[in-house]
């Protein structure tokens, strides 16, 4: 069953801003990254899915229920980017109130509250008023709220934005733990390395438009770049490379060997290049794929969109 479904979901303000025509389907147990710069419309999408904003077009479902209906949010957790909780409550009282709103059985409430307090590392601080919490602690109590009802789906909107490096690592570990538990996580982030670390699937949004979606590894294959090491006496062949080679550059000489960077259009062209070198009698000592920079990947898809149309790599 799809945990999240959106079909041309649109939320604009007088026809401007927001996010337009998002179509996606996310299955169970997937960590899905919704990647885009600040102001791309990521939070708008999440808030529309959660019924906080009324869509101006299209439709969406959470756990099979149409968005906007309370039933769609029964097994959903949410950590907002702009988190603010009633500061006159203690952390524990906040969780108790959320437990009531989630209709959690009274018998298991206390135990579950203890569990999530421990999970987010707030043990011993839960009886303090939220007023006295640091930003990091507030984010932790927010995470505890999001996980309280043992949700099947968790929306995390920039979950590490307020945290120090240790806190960020804790949250990433928590995401991986939740992934192991079979939870579906929808991660909104502008931090490329955060998305890369934990996400299986990714959507890229830019200026309110859904640019591309698919498996992260596939999206990373924006170009095939390899480093090859050949015998220095074969360097003249590098001026007769096949047409699909877009670019090549000598990196350095290493004694009787020379290191080159070669860029092709597609990953599938790498074996062809090796064959072509071998058939020309060029001794190849080493072939190393070069992983593109995350920023380059992101910009590649943004530029693709500006040149052409939406890319669906699902």
């Amino acid at each position: 069953m799809n945990v999240i479904e959106a079909s041309n979901l649109t939320k604009t303000y007088d026809g401007k801003g927001g996010i337009s025509n998002v179509t996606l389907e996310i299955g169970e147990g997937i960590v899905y990254g919704f990647l885009g710069p600040n102001g791309a419309g990521k939070s708008t999408f999440v808030r529309t899915m959660l019924g906080l904003l009324n869509p101006t077009g299209g439709e969406g479902k959470l756990l099979g229920e149409p968005i906007g209906k309370p039933e769609s949010r029964e097994k959903v957790g949410y950590l907002p980017e702009l988190f603010r909780y009633p500061d006159w409550l203690t952390g524990r009282k906040l969780l108790e109130s959320h437990a009531e709103l989630c209709n959690m059985p009274v018998r298991g409430r206390k135990k579950r509250i203890e569990e999530v307090i421990e999970l987010v590392g707030l043990t011993g601080r839960d009886h303090e008023k939220i007023k006295g919490y640091s930003k990091g602690m507030s984010q932790r109590i927010g995470l505890a709220c999001a996980l309280l009802n043992d949700p099947k789906l968790i929306f995390l909107d920039e979950p590490t934005s307020a945290l120090d490096p240790i806190g960020r690592k804790d949250v990433r570990d928590l995401m991986l733990y939740l992934k192991d538990q079979g939870k579906t996580i929808f991660l909104n982030s502008h931090l490329l390395n955060e998305v890369e670390t934990v996400c299986d699937h990714v959507s890229i949004v830019h200026k309110g438009e859904h640019i591309v979606q698919g498996e992260w590894r596939q999206l990373m294959m924006i170009e095939a770049q390899v480093e090859i090491v050949i015998a220095a006496n074969s360097n003249q062949y590098m001026n007769q490379l096949p047409e699909y080679v877009k670019y090549h550059e000598k990196k350095n000489d290493e004694g009787e060997l020379t290191r080159w960077t070669v860029q092709m259009e597609k990953q599938e062209q790498v074996p062809a290049l090796i064959s072509s070198l071998a058939s020309a009698g060029v001794p190849v000592f080493e072939v190393t794929p070069i992983t593109p920079h995350l920023e380059d990947v992101f910009m590649h898809w943004v530029n693709q969109k500006e040149e052409g149309a939406y890319v669906d790599n699902r």
Binding site: R47, L50, P70, E74, Y78, F83, P86, C102, N103
Partner: peptide, 14 residues
């Protein structure tokens, strides 16, 4: 205004 309402309204209440 403060977005405090977000976490209440995302619960299964109308």
């Amino acid at each position: 205004d403060s977005h405090q309402i977000d976490t209440w309204l995302m619960r299964p209440i109308s």
